[in-house]
């Protein structure tokens, strides 16, 4: 009898009571973890970005704009560019034998990776000015080196850096942050893995920095509307501070690298 085991790749929603009791959050509830940013880490790529959110490490390389490798369905989307994405979770991400076995490491693209890549494309499709790149494809290659919670937020930040590094035209830098709602009804900003697993609800928000708009909201868990709205509002505020740091970082990088001939 054929039996498929459903993949559990997200947080487990039964509160792990023992773990929670032992665990203490060392920073204030509304503070994100230490942020490390870097660009230009991948030499071959048109642009690349590296982000560390606490212990979560993500690296993104951008290739393009270049002619599309695979033409979708045989019909070229002529007048607008396309974004493709491949996400790989390195084997360092899996913390238990069970989850490694289930995640199909080394055996092609797992479902979780495929979902992450679709989501990332969805975030950046309205952000990249695609009609400036007709008949071209912008390819994103993401590697999650270590996942200690908020991996998707780190991915989004790294992709923004990579796109800026590759000088691809974007409406704005995209900032992203995760907020967890704990069993004690607290809002924990930028949760690590333990906090994510014990959470009642998890919301990741991505937004372009200079607009009062959201480009993506990811939600898991059951929340009432008020809690949801407050969490989103909190996330938006924190994301804007993170975004500002990112912009400052990009400006610093440019100042460091500028050649005298470019500016007179």
């Amino acid at each position: 009898m054929e039996r498929r085991i459903s993949q559990r790749y997200g947080p487990f929603f039964e509160p792990i009571h023992s773990l929670e009791r032992e665990y203490q959050r060392t920073r204030p509830n509304n503070a994100p973890r230490s942020l490390v940013l870097n660009t230009g880490t991948v030499v071959d790529a048109a642009g690349s970005g590296y982000v560390e959110l606490g212990k979560t490490k993500v690296i993104v390389a951008v290739q393009g704009p270049r002619p599309p490798i695979r033409i979708r369905g045989g019909v070229e989307n002529t007048m607008n560019g396309r974004i493709t994405c491949e996400v790989v979770k390195s084997s360092f991400c899996y913390y238990s034998y069970e989850s490694t076995r289930m995640a199909n490491v080394g055996r092609g693209v797992s479902e979780e990776e495929r979902l992450l890549s679709t989501r990332l494309v969805r975030v950046f499709e309205p952000i990249v000015i695609l009609d400036k790149y007709p008949k071209c494809s912008i390819d994103l290659y993401v590697v999650i080196l270590e996942d200690d919670g908020s991996a998707f937020a780190a991915m989004t930040l790294a992709t923004s850096l990579a796109l800026a590094d590759a000088s691809i035209e974007i409406i704005s830098v995209v900032s992203s942050v995760t907020v967890a709602i704990s069993t004690k009804q607290e809002y924990l900003v930028d949760p690590d893995r333990t906090e994510s697993e014990c959470a009642v609800g998890l919301i990741t928000v991505s937004l372009p920095l200079h607009a009062a708009q959201l480009c993506e909201i990811q939600h898991t868990g059951k929340l009432s509307i008020q809690v949801w709205l407050s969490a989103v509002q909190l996330a938006v505020e924190v994301a804007q501070t993170i975004g500002n740091s990112m912009c400052q970082f990009l400006l610093q990088e440019m100042e460091k690298n500028e050649t005298p001939s470019l500016c007179s």
Binding site: A212, I217, Q218, T220, W228, L229
Partner: peptide, 21 residues
């Protein structure tokens, strides 16, 4: 009326969201 899942795409106005909910 509790929210169990959200899927979004495109640039959405944050103010509109609360009205929609």
């Amino acid at each position: 009326g509790d929210i169990c899942h959200v899927y979004s795409f495109g640039l959405l106005d944050a103010v509109e969201l609360s009205r929609l909910l």
